Each structure stands twice: as C-alpha cells, then as structure tokens.
Simulated scan of single mutants.
Amino acid sequence: MNGTTRDRDEEGRARSARPRDGLGRPLPYGVEGVPRQPEGVVRTPAETLREAQRLLDAGMPFHAHEVFEDAWKSGPEAERDLWQGLAQLAVGLTHAARGNREGGARLLRRGADRLVSLGRSHGGPHCSADDSPYGIDVGGLVAWARELADRSEAARTEVDAAAEAPLLRGPGA
C-alpha cells in the first residue's frame, strides 16, 4: 500500500493485502504470512466444524473465527447465535494468545454466555439428546471458555493457542 490508496479486493471492497501471522496479526508488506481464509465460503455445518477444528488445532483461532463468521453470515437466522458464540470463543482465544488477557477473557465469557443462552432456547432437528446442535459440546465449550478466561486473566504470559484449542464436538462425534 502506498499510503494514499487502500488495498481493495476483486469487487473493490477495502481489504488489507498485508500478510498475516497465524494469530491474524498484520505483518509488514513483502513478508510471507499464513494464507488467509477465503471470505464468503458457504459450508455445511459439519464442514464448518471440521475446518474450524483443524484451524484451532493448528493454533490459528483467528482463522477459525473467519470460518464461523462465514457460517453466521450464510446460515439460517435461527443459528446465528450458535456461530457467533463460537466465533467469539475463537476471537477470545486469539486475544489471549496475543497477550491481551483482559480482552481475551471478556470475549471468552461473552461467547460462553451466548452459547448458554442458546442452550436454553435451542431445539430442533439438529440437536442431539443432550440438546447440542450438530454434536457440538456446548457444555464442554462453556466450561473451557470460562476456565481459560479465569486463567488468562491471572497469567502474566500469553497462552499457547494450539495447546489451549478446545474440542468443538464431544468425544466420538
């Protein structure tokens, strides 16, 4: 970028072309970064969960957030809270891994609260016997997020995003 114009995508929308690291932080132009997630990809819920889990396991929660963002933008309105809650968990982990302990904890708790409220109101054909949509371990994720929020606020160091990656689905899902 030359300082007078903004980077634009193929449709002319402002979009930074700066490379990014695995936690989504911008790197200097000319440095090789991590490939970015394409925007606007429509996936099935199973594909969304598989891709997000792969990215979380690789220590790339920022990129997992983008996968969840695609799901909330392309999915049915009734599932928006689910995907937004999962995106908030991924962004919370991103901030905690970047060293923003307070911001990370706040987002982790916000995502957990969104998932708890979803669990109270969610029902329908995609829920398992434990009322978890698409086999998502809502209770486990809520417990993980709250525990990590508490630990990250108390810590003096960044958290390891790959080591702290949650399991989106329960065992055997």
Rank of each mutant, 00 (worst) to 15 (best):
G99P: 09
V67S: 09
G24C: 14
L107W: 00
R109F: 03
A17D: 10
E47D: 13
L49K: 03
A46I: 05
E47R: 07
V41R: 09
E77K: 07
S121Y: 00
R25N: 14
A112N: 09
R109I: 04
L86E: 06
V42H: 09
R25S: 15
W83V: 09
G75W: 04
L93G: 06
L86H: 00
L108E: 10
S128R: 04
E69A: 12
G85Y: 02
R109M: 12
G119K: 06
Q53L: 13
A64D: 06
E69C: 13
W83L: 13
E51V: 13
E47I: 07
H126N: 12
G22A: 15
G140N: 05
S117P: 01
G33A: 09
V31T: 12
R18G: 03
G59H: 02
G59T: 05
G92C: 09
A71N: 05
R101C: 06
H65V: 07
V41L: 13
G22M: 11
L56D: 04
R110G: 14
V138Y: 01
V67R: 01
S117D: 15
E47W: 00
R106Y: 01
L115P: 00
D57Y: 02
G124N: 09
D130M: 12
G103E: 15
P26A: 12
R114M: 15
P61M: 09
G139I: 04
G119F: 02
P28I: 13
P35K: 02
S128K: 03
A52V: 11
F62W: 04
A71Y: 01
F62L: 04
L141N: 03
G75I: 13
E39W: 00
T48Y: 04
S74V: 07
A46E: 15
